[in-house]
Design a binder for these strands. Structure first.
Length: 609
RNA sequence: GGGGGCGUGGUGAAGUCUGGAGUUCACGCCGGCCUGUCAAGCCGGAGGUCGCGGGUUCAAAUCCCGUCGCUCCCGCCA
């Protein structure tokens, strides 16, 4: 039965192979008088002893069905047994409710179906939790019965939003002549980056596939293959610890274009973001999106993914303390550090609340946090006030634009620490709760490398990112800038991209800076280096995190709400029981044995049970 | 690897700090009444290993230790 089929006139008897002629959500006052058949779930039953009302729900909506005993159609046995979530098919006449009985809360509220026949297609046990929105059910239970959870209107809406988002992505890219190409999900492991999800090979025992962290190298190969513009809705896998916005598997809109530079990519990204936001949220976003360089973002917001829906910007106060008597600040400045602060506004925090902020700052890596409260008379109340001259106090208030009641938070440390601490405190103190407003932002000019704990250089984006300037990159890797960029929405990194290296010599030099020997590079990426040698067009691209984007557009606090069947924080699926142990025979075929210490743990657990 | 929060009839919460009878509230479930409801209403009823294990105590949902599960964060996430 197809949703667009018109209501069939003159149906008189239900037949076993006909479930419906129309849908609850399609019915309105215009259908008054039509004989229709609908099928769906019994959402509620309001039994008045004689007359019974049923709300019948399907994916399109809800319609009220009236069963009147005078009608004499549904047997008492059938009606008595009807419970929530039974699946039924109802034959009846669409009837105007009359003004007194209209329900304005549902689209079909002006009409109801007066049932002449009712058939139970499938009974339902009492549910393990209620489907209405009045309680927050434990998420483990929701995941165990996800098929019930997804019946809830918000979850159904999230599924639809995700579908709508992906459809508009396809529409935009299709209109621009992109080719949708699939790349393998069983690929070679690359030890760079995140931990790989590994899959043992049966035909080559002791060898492993990896699931792709992204289709990065394949899409670059497609550029070399002559594909002009590529995209893919790509499932990606990274085996790192879970967060509200991170799952072991996630979905990206992956795209790449030949003969492209940064501006070409950003233009398409903007169009995609605008169209998706229009489709899902019905908003028209202002273009162009704001842009910040990485350095500006770090200076003003303390993070490379600033939430620019609110101000509370970080100010550099170092100059104020250039000759300070306050030893803590003087020491930091003498050691090449910086002193910066934010004005958190009038918070009215208690002493305990302020102490909590200090604790928070310390846990983020700061050696301390200086708080100041501006009193009504303009004086500063702070544990360190006595160490600061009047001039310094006045200068602080000036720099932070402080008014009476304002709470000022100041951190002195190396730049990265100051940025992290103040950036986080800024979010703690000011970030809006929901996602009513959408603030997209491009962050550009990322550093090419970051220094690892071991003192080596690691790529900030990935090793195939083109440097702004090759000589700079080689001579001063600490400060070299890359042609990488991010899209940020409301303080979340939606995705990142870059102009790629298309010249094997440059690629080799990047590997050199990364400390990858020519021999190593050849062994690990030789096949890719070879490909670069056969005529590679300059190219650039990007990857959008679809889960994050849809979750923010839907105002959801985590991406699990927009993933139909997500994993828990410990990587398990309560519904199917994955990951699970497998039979010894399966392991044998793969040449895999379970380590003795793991077997020992299993034995202990079994004893405990 | 580390830190925080949560775990109480089917569901959600209160009770835990300050130990004293499985107590309470809302929803659901079962039964009854009820012919115009809109998450119907009214009356009645059933339903519990207080996640699990150990300890302290005359006495543990409550205090202590361990453990499991869920969750948020730091680390990690090219």
């Amino acid at each position: 039965m197809d949703a667009s089929a018109p209501p069939t006139q003159g149906v008189r008897d239900m037949t076993a192979d006909l479930y419906r002629t129309t849908r609850p959500g399609l019915l309105g006052i215009g259908n008054d008088g039509e004989t229709v058949q609908v099928a769906g779930w019994v959402q509620t039953r309001r039994d008045h002893g004689g007359i019974v009302f049923l709300d019948v729900r399907d994916a399109t909506g809800i319609v009220q069905v009236v069963v009147d005993p005078e009608g004499g159609v549904a047997t008492e046995e059938v009606l008595d047994g009807l419970r929530r979530e039974y699946v039924v098919s109802v034959l009846g006449v669409v009837t105007s409710r009359g003004e007194d009985h209209v329900n304005p809360d549902i689209p079909s509220g002006e009409i109801e179906i007066v049932a002449s026949e009712l058939r139970v297609l499938s009974p339902a046990d009492p549910l393990p939790f209620q489907l209405d929105e009045r309680v927050d059910v434990d998420e483990g239970l929701r995941l165990q019965y996800r098929y019930l959870d997804l019946r809830r209107p918000t979850m159904a809406a999230n599924l639809k939003a995700r579908s709508d988002a992906i459809r508009s992505m396809r529409r935009v890219l299709d209109a621009r002549g992109f080719l949708e190409v699939e790349t393998p999900t069983l690929v070679a492991s690359t030890p760079e980056g995140a931990r790989d999800v590994l899959v043992p090979s049966r035909l080559r025992q002791g060898h492993f596939y990896a699931l792709p962290q992204s289709p990065q190298l394949f899409k670059q190969l497609l550029m070399i293959s002559g594909v002009d513009r590529y995209f893919q809705i790509a499932r990606c896998y990274r085996d790192e610890d879970f967060r509200a916005d991170r799952q072991i598997e996630f979905t990206q809109l992956d795209l790449e274009g030949a003969f492209w530079g940064q501006e070409d990519v950003l233009e398409v990204l903007e169009e995609v973001a605008v169209e998706v936001s229009r489709e899902v949220r019905g908003v028209d976003l202002a273009r162009p999106f704001p842009r910040l360089t990485w350095q500006e973002a770090m200076d003003r917001y303390g993070t490379d993914k600033p939430d620019i829906r609110f101000e509370m910007e970080i100010r550099d106060l170092s100059a104020i303390f250039s000759a300070t008597e306050f030893k803590a600040f003087a020491g930091v400045l003498g050691g090449g550090g910086t002193v910066r602060g934010i004005n958190a506004g009038a918070k009215g925090l208690t002493r305990a609340g302020l102490d909590g902020l200090v604790e928070r700052a310390t846990s983020l890596g700061a050696k301390g946090l200086v708080w100041m409260v501006v009193e009504e008379d303009g004086s500063i109340r702070s544990p360190v006030a006595k160490f600061l001259s009047d001039t310094e106090q006045e200068a602080i208030k000036g720099a932070l634009n402080a008014a009476a009641g304002d709470l000022l938070l100041i951190v002195a440390d190396q730049f990265r620490t100051v940025a992290k601490v103040l950036g986080t405190l800024r979010l703690d103190m000011g970030q809006p709760d929901g996602h009513e407003e959408l603030a997209y932002l491009f962050v550009t000019d990322f550093p090419h490398f970051e220094v690892t704990d071991e003192g080596n250089y690691a790529p900030m984006h990935h090793p195939f990112t083109a440097p702004e300037n090759v000589d700079d990159m080689i001579e001063s890797p600490d400060t070299a800038v890359s042609q990488a960029y991010d899209v940020v929405l409301n303080g979340s990194e939606l995705g990142s991209g870059s102009v790629r290296i298309h010249d094997p010599a440059t690629q080799g030099k990047v590997f050199e800076v990364l400390g990858i020997t020519a021999e190593d590079a050849k062994r690990r990426f030789g096949w890719f280096m070879d490909a670069l040698r056969y005529g590679t067009p300059p190219h650039a691209g990007f990857a959008f995190g679809i889960d994050r984007m849809v979750s923010i557009l839907q105002g959801e606090p985590n991406i699990r709400e927009v993933i139909p069947f997500p994993k828990t924080q410990t990587g398990s699926d309560p519904l199917t029981g994955s990951p699970s142990r497998v039979a010894d025979a399966q392991l044998g075929e793969l040449g895999v044995i379970i380590a003795p210490e793991v077997l020992a743990v299993w034995a202990e657990q079994e004893d405990a049970e």
